[in-house]
Amino acid sequence: MQCEGDKTYDEIGTCPVCKMDLKQLENDSKALETNEISEESIFNLTSKWHTEEGNEIVLEDLKGKTLVMVMIYTSCKAACPRLVADMRNIEAQIPAENIKNVQFALVSIDPETDTPERLKAFAIENAMDGEQWTFLQGTDSGVREFANVLSVKYKEISPIDFSHSNIISVFNSRGELKHQQEGLGVNNKETIETILELTK
C-alpha cells in the first residue's frame, strides 16, 4: 500500500499512516552515505579524550546525536560560569522528546588541572551530571587541535587563568558544524532552532 508515495524513513518502525512495518530498502546508497564521515566532520580528529567518568573515548564515539559543545575550564571565575549558564539555558528549552537525541559536551582548555575527577565534581556542583552531559579532558595538542577546528582562541595568562573565546557550537549527528553562538548571555533563539531542526 503506497500511503505516502515514495517517502522513506531513516529509522525502522511502522508507517504513521497505515501502521504497516517499514522495510529496509535494498542497496540504498543514500542510506549508506549517511553513516559516512565527511571531510568537514570533527570525527576525523583521532585524539583521545577522558570523560568525567574516567572513560577514554575519541570524538567519533559521540556520533549519532546532535552535539552542543563549548570549551571552558573549571577554575574560571569570569566567562565560564556564564557559558555554563548559557548551556543549561539551552538545555532547558529543548523538549524532552528532542533532548534524548542531544549530547552537551564541555571540553576543558586546562587539561592539566581539569582531571576527570575534577570534571565530575564540577558536573555534580552544576547539576550537569545527567547522561545528556559529557565533560572531556584531552591532551594539550588534542585540545589545541579541537579549538582550531572550532575557531576558539585561548591563551594561558597565568597558571590558573586563561583568556578564551566564548563560542557554543552545534554539530549534526555526523559531526559537521551547523551553527555557532558567540558571546555571553546572548539571544540563543537561532541555536535552539538549529538543535530542534537537527533532532526532529
Rank of each mutant, 00 (worst) to 15 (best):
N166Q: 11
T34Q: 15
P159N: 05
L198S: 08
D86N: 14
D114A: 07
W49Y: 13
P159H: 04
K30Q: 13
V68E: 02
H50K: 10
L22D: 07
E131H: 13
D114F: 03
I160A: 10
E39P: 03
R174M: 14
Q137Y: 02
R144W: 05
L119H: 01
R82K: 11
Q180V: 15
C15P: 10
S163C: 03
N35P: 00
W133K: 06
T34Y: 11
I37Q: 07
G13F: 03
N166R: 03
L45S: 04
N27F: 10
Y73T: 00
L25P: 00
E91K: 10
S108Q: 09
D10K: 13
L119C: 04
K120E: 07
H50W: 05
T34K: 12
P111K: 06
G183N: 04
I90T: 06
K155Q: 14
K153I: 08
L83Y: 03
L196W: 08
K19R: 15
T194W: 14
V186A: 12
M71Y: 01
T74I: 07
V58L: 05
S29N: 09
E53D: 14
D28H: 15
I168L: 08
V107M: 04
N89H: 13
F104E: 07
Q103R: 15
I12D: 12
G185L: 06
L83F: 03
K23H: 10
E190C: 01
N27T: 01
K65S: 07
E4M: 09
G142T: 00
L177Q: 02
L119P: 02
S38H: 02
E52V: 04
H179F: 13
K48V: 13
N166P: 00
D161S: 15
A31F: 12
M128C: 14
W49F: 10
A123M: 06
E125R: 13
F122R: 10
N101S: 06
D161N: 12
P95N: 12
W133H: 09
D28P: 01
I90L: 12
F43P: 12
S169I: 00
V149H: 11
I42V: 07
L59E: 01
S169R: 02
R82I: 14
R174E: 10
T8Y: 06
E145K: 13
Q132F: 12
K200N: 13
R174K: 09
P116M: 01
V68P: 00
E39K: 13
S158A: 12
G185P: 03
F162H: 08
K100A: 05
A96R: 10
I94M: 11
D129E: 07
M20D: 14
V70D: 08
D129A: 15
S29E: 12
S158V: 02
E56T: 15
W49V: 05
L136I: 04
D140K: 15
D86Q: 07
F104T: 04
T66D: 07
W133C: 05
K63P: 01
I94P: 02
C18H: 14
E197T: 09
Q137V: 03
F104W: 09
L106P: 05
R118G: 11
I57S: 07
I167W: 03
N27Q: 09
P81A: 01
R88S: 13
E52P: 05
I168V: 07
C15F: 10
M69P: 00
K30D: 08
M69F: 01
L32Q: 15
D10V: 09
I72F: 13
T115S: 09
